[in-house]
Amino acid sequence: MEVKTGTWTEKKGLAQMLKGGVIMDVVTAEHAKIAEDAGACAVMALERVPADIRADGGVARMSDPELILKIIDSVSIPVMAKCRIGHFVEAQILESLGVDYIDESEVLTPADELNHILKHNFKVPFVCGCRNLGEALRRVGEGAAMIRTKGEAGTGDVVEAVRHARTVLGDIRKLTTMADEELMRYSKEIGAPYELVKETKELGRMPVVNFAAGGVATPADAALMMQLGVDGVFVGSGIFKSGDPAKRANAIVKAVTHYQDASILAEVSKNLGEAMVGRNVSQMPEAEKIAGRGW
């Protein structure tokens, strides 16, 4: 009996298992346990949540493998970890640790300002950020088996995640109305591989799972992203920078499942304590924004 590992179906498939769920940033094994108990479908293991990366400044790199292994040992759900854009050796290290998904993330300081990792070279699947359909399909072309909006991580301001989700989903809606002979010009215009543009038109959706990320802080934010049409939600700083992480985490999980039920959303939004303080993206200097990282 022939056995095949690391296939495109396997890589895309794990992301399909995460749909309708919440992936939470955690910085310790204890956080990871809280996230799992709250109903997270996966955790993102990292040394600092994006809000702290912003506050600390300096170069943000892959986390200590020891920390990632501790988090892997502490939970039964999938564990993701971040490497820098273009840093394929960090990715090799993460793959060897047994992480289930690698996020080639703009939240860390890019290692290559021209090229992303050729993700087809790995058995472990990758997720990448995007702001529009062209960027998303370039990443899929390089082998990303899952896509997320970039939003503006570590701000608690959902406005950029909304902008990016609306742009990506709006681009797809436009694409579905185009004539087949217009697809080559459109591919050129958005800088995306023609075959993937064609596939996206045929499917009427992104060819891989598409989550929202970057600024989600409340159950209502999470449900908003779901109603806009994403497949699930990443929550970074929004949980462990809030007053009652366990309760907020559980409320956001419930909000993603029942994203169309306003009475349940009202119920889970009650008495959650302080949300993360947050930073208003529209008043932020351009140099501090990280969504522009990625090419």
């Binding site: 009996m1 022939e2 056995v3 095949k4 590992t5 690391g6 296939t7 179906t9 396997e10 498939g13 794990l14 039964s76 999938p78 793959e95 047994g98 992480v99 289930d100 998904y101 058995k123 472990v124 699947p125």
Partner: peptide
Amino acid sequence: NAFGRQIDSFETD
């Protein structure tokens, strides 16, 4: 998770 982590995920007939 009886077969291991994601890199051990597989297809077979």
